[in-house]
Design a protein around this nucleic acid. Structure first.
Lengths: 216, 216
DNA sequence: TGAAAATTACACTTTTAAGTGTATTGTATT
DNA sequence: AATACAATACACTTAAAAGTGTAATTTTCA
């Protein structure tokens, strides 16, 4: 066993139904030790600091002190405590904030027992876990922003790729020619062909293109 | 059953071992009907358009036509066909590109049968699925990006950053000078200072450095 | 307030890349 | 067999960047 024989948990949620449900799900498990509960963020922080707790399963929306603030305070004092966030909210910004605050896992409120146990296992092994439902949502948001696509229209040949990588490494046409046993004019031709087909105007923009399209 | 009695599949991968393995895993399943195979992107597109296929499980790296291009072509003609991408690559940008190209699910090559079946079930119910391993990787990258630039050793000044970005955009010293109301010799001095402090030898390597260090 | 760093600017030479055009050979694809 | 594309190679001109050195302001911060 890479961690203690049993894992002592703290369930923090302001809805009695949720805490009870989680309690029922977890109490029978072999690896689960003591299960504490808290009905708001303040109580969660207090118990986390006072009791011997390995892992906290908590909601984001709680009275007194929300999950975000609670997570920050707990991680500040006891960074070894793992925090699994359970939420209905899948807002990318929220997830991002929670992860920044130190959360180790993020799962949906309607996930089953198997996934919850998987998440506990992962975090106790110092891994992070984000449930597919939540990450799907995140990817959808990411798609809109930063992604550029290298498509078939303007793709580079094998030789051109070989050369652009050497260009990016700072080699001159002559050096590349020597390396590839080519004439320097050939290398220059390839360079110019790339600029033409990608509609770029010089080496700098070519290297930037290559970097953006993961060609290097 | 919300979809046909059985699901007809196409497995597209250039590695025989993978196609065979997936075939073995899937052939016994109640919901699985005919299983076609393809050993490259071109073949995958051809079969997808010719045969009656519900769902395609495919690799990204394939000869002839890669997964990205294949997915685009297939979705263009037959958008109802679901595409599950199986890959070792977890590059966030790659995942994003594939999703944009129309992929419905993204799973790791070393995932088990259960997860594969889960992905098939999800996509056939018009949902998307991204395996946790892949999304975790994305988050790790996002975190790296957010933290970034911390090394005081060889960092660039504000002015230098401003100039390197314009260089990467393909502007010449003269153009940059005009843009920033500077003399072209000043721009050149900045350029040379950057090369010196970063121990690089030319524009190409400078732009590569900038891209690698998220300076652009 | 004084030192260090940043920003600005120039001269001069050499090397490299960009712009334009042509052309041969091999290799797939149709 | 014809076509298209990739890869190779060259000539010639102009533009840009690299290499080396110097130096005056201005800003920052210890």
């Amino acid at each position: 066993m890479p961690y203690e024989i049993t894992i002592d948990l703290l369930i923090a949620d302001d809805h009695q139904l949720i805490t009870d449900g989680l309690y029922q799900i977890l109490q029978g498990e072999k690896l689960v030790g003591t299960i504490h509960t808290a009905k708001n963020g303040r109580e969660a922080v207090d118990k986390a600091l006072a009791e011997n707790i390995d892992c906290i399963i908590m909601d984001i929306n709680m009275p007194e002190l929300n999950g975000l603030e609670a997570a920050k305070l707990i991680k500040k004092e006891k960074p070894q405590i793992k925090i699994i966030v359970v939420s209905m909210l899948c807002e990318p910004s929220v997830v991002s904030k929670m992860l920044k605050a130190g959360a180790d896992a993020f799962i949906n409120k309607d996930t089953g027992k198997a996934e919850l146990l998987k998440a506990i296992d992962k975090v106790m092994h110092n891994e992070t876990y984000i449930s597919p439902e939540i990450s799907n949502n995140l990817f959808r948001h990411l798609n809109d922003n930063n992604v550029k696509i290298a498509d078939h229209e303007n793709h580079l040949t094998k030789r051109e790729l070989e050369i652009i990588r050497l260009i990016a490494d700072g080699l001159t046409n002559n050096e590349i020619a020597a390396r590839l046993f080519l004439s320097n004019v050939t290398v220059n031709t390839h360079r110019k062909n790339m600029l033409a087909k990608l509609q770029l105007k010089n080496t700098a923009s070519l290297v930037k293109y290559a970097a953006e399209n993961k060609l290097l």
